[in-house]
Design a protein around this nucleic acid. Structure first.
Length: 131
RNA sequence: AAAGGCGGUCGGAUAGCUGCACGGCGGAAAGGAAAAUCCGUUUGUGAGGAAAGUCCGGGCUUCAAGAGGACAAAACACCAGAUAACGUCUGGCUGGAGCAAUCCAAGGGAAAGUGCCACAGAAAAAUACCGCCGGAAACCAUUUCCGGUAAGGCUGAAAAGGCGAGGUAAGAGCUCACCGCGAGGUUGGUAACAAUCUCGGCAAGGUAAACCCUGUUUGAAGCAAGACCAAGUUAGGGGUUUUCACGUGCGUUUACGCAAACGGAAUAGAUGGGGCGUUCUCUCCCCUCUCCAGAGGUAGGUCGCGAUGAGCCUUUCAGCAAUGGAAGGCCAAGAUGAAUAGCUAUCCCCCUUUUUAGGGGACAGAACCCGGCUUAUAGACUGCCUUUUUAG
RNA sequence: GCGCUCGUGGCGGAAUUGGUAGACGCGUAACGUUGAGGUCGUUAUGGGCUAAGCCCGUGAAAGUUCGAGUCUUUUCGAGCGCA
């Protein structure tokens, strides 16, 4: 895929939160099928809650997640998918290479889950992932 | 040199690679043109002293309102000045802390009125329990009654100026010296106030960060203010198709036909299709051609919004200072799920370690803009002042 | 952006107008009852020093007052409302 778009609407975040989820020490990744996006795009959203700290810590968390995504999304993200990254306490302080490897692991795992879901059933059958 | 006090400046630096936002420049398609959109470009710029808390004051915007005044509510309160304004700042006064430099203070009114002052104590704001003194009566070791007194008394945070002398039946500012207090005058000062002189003899406690009184200030709300554009929905209108159930017309006829007859209807009716109610049947409900488009203004967008502002820097003048005037120079973030990041190298600072080396670099992120206040803050540099010690 | 409320033992929650702080309930511990446990009853229970006793304690720091849980200011935390 060629393009990276940023999620902006609350609706999209809520839909991603209802989808699949992978947790790593430095971040949480959620994903769901996009509804109205061109084929060669995938969309990313970034969340940093008030629990993490004050404003400058939340800003740094989002910036680091954005930088990591920019490095890896081209080879590892599926097109037509919405991803949401949620920051954790460690995200702002952990080594950048570790953050990147966590992101790669989470992406590969969640992509595997998505393709497995797609193959056996039709798309409308599994709105509620049960694991 | 040590200890201390009051300020001021800064808030890691440089280079490279990969990326972000806005502006500039160039190009693309479309278009009358512009705006907007997309692509490229290293061409420019890119968080703070508090951006924070939202505690005050303004600009700006909308609403309200004759000018103005009053009530209510809130805030403030020694004096003078600065300022657009302020509850801010500067200088001074008074009181307090400190050897000092210096620092701290919501610092008007209790003689306008109301309330409160637990426990203790005779008594908490008005009085006489004990005591002291005098007189009278009873009775004769003392008791009772009347009067004077505020010297002494336990208590308490606080008990009718302090201390000494005179004075007295005992006492008392009753009188006197000193100190304190109050009133008036003089001098100095713009004033708060200070110094000094004369007089009064002492008025009857605290609390106003209890109500309150006096004086001053305040119209309300906030950029999600507000202005503009504007899907969908939709008043209304046009066109096409269908419908003969309705009115009129025509034909035949008394019930049908005619929409290449007209009007009206489209939320009248019929037929068909779809949706919903688990399944089937029935009933019921909703939807079912297209174009234009008023008003309103929703979703959404644009502006407000940053290169003109109580702006910044330098020099100079006035002033003790806050600050003000003049001259010269400069233009410096503008996002909206919200731009500054990631990595590498060198230098700087701190910690650990025998070296190599390793770890760390505070508080903290603009959101319409300014002036303050408050709070958080590793460390670095620097100016002035005070005290003590040593040397000359 | 504007505005409001609340912080008291381990927990919930009292404290009249400023006057001895921890009422009341839950919990915890010990003892009694029981073969054992529950229920029930009694006692104790904030922190420090061993007991009497003293000191410190109402989110934190200052102030007013003779005296603050209460009044005032600043600050920290939690929650709520409106646009």
């Amino acid at each position: 895929m060629a393009k990276l778009l940023i999620l902006k609407k609350r609706k999209d975040f809520v839909r991603a939160a209802k989808g699949l989820k992978v947790v790593t020490p430095s971040l949480i990744l959620q994903a769901a099928q996009s509804l109205c996006v061109p084929d060669d795009c995938c969309r990313f959203g970034f969340t940093a809650t008030k629990k993490l700290g004050k404003a400058h810590i939340r800003n740094r968390t989002k910036r680091r997640m954005r930088a990591a995504v920019r490095d890896v999304f081209y080879d590892n993200a599926l097109s037509g998918t919405d991803y949401v990254l949620i920051g954790r306490y460690k995200t702002a302080t952990v080594d950048f290479m570790a953050l990147k490897s966590d992101l790669l692991y989470a992406l590969s795992k969640i992509n595997k889950m998505i393709t497995e879901k797609k193959e056996p059933h039709s798309d409308e059958a599994d709105l509620h992932p049960t694991d």
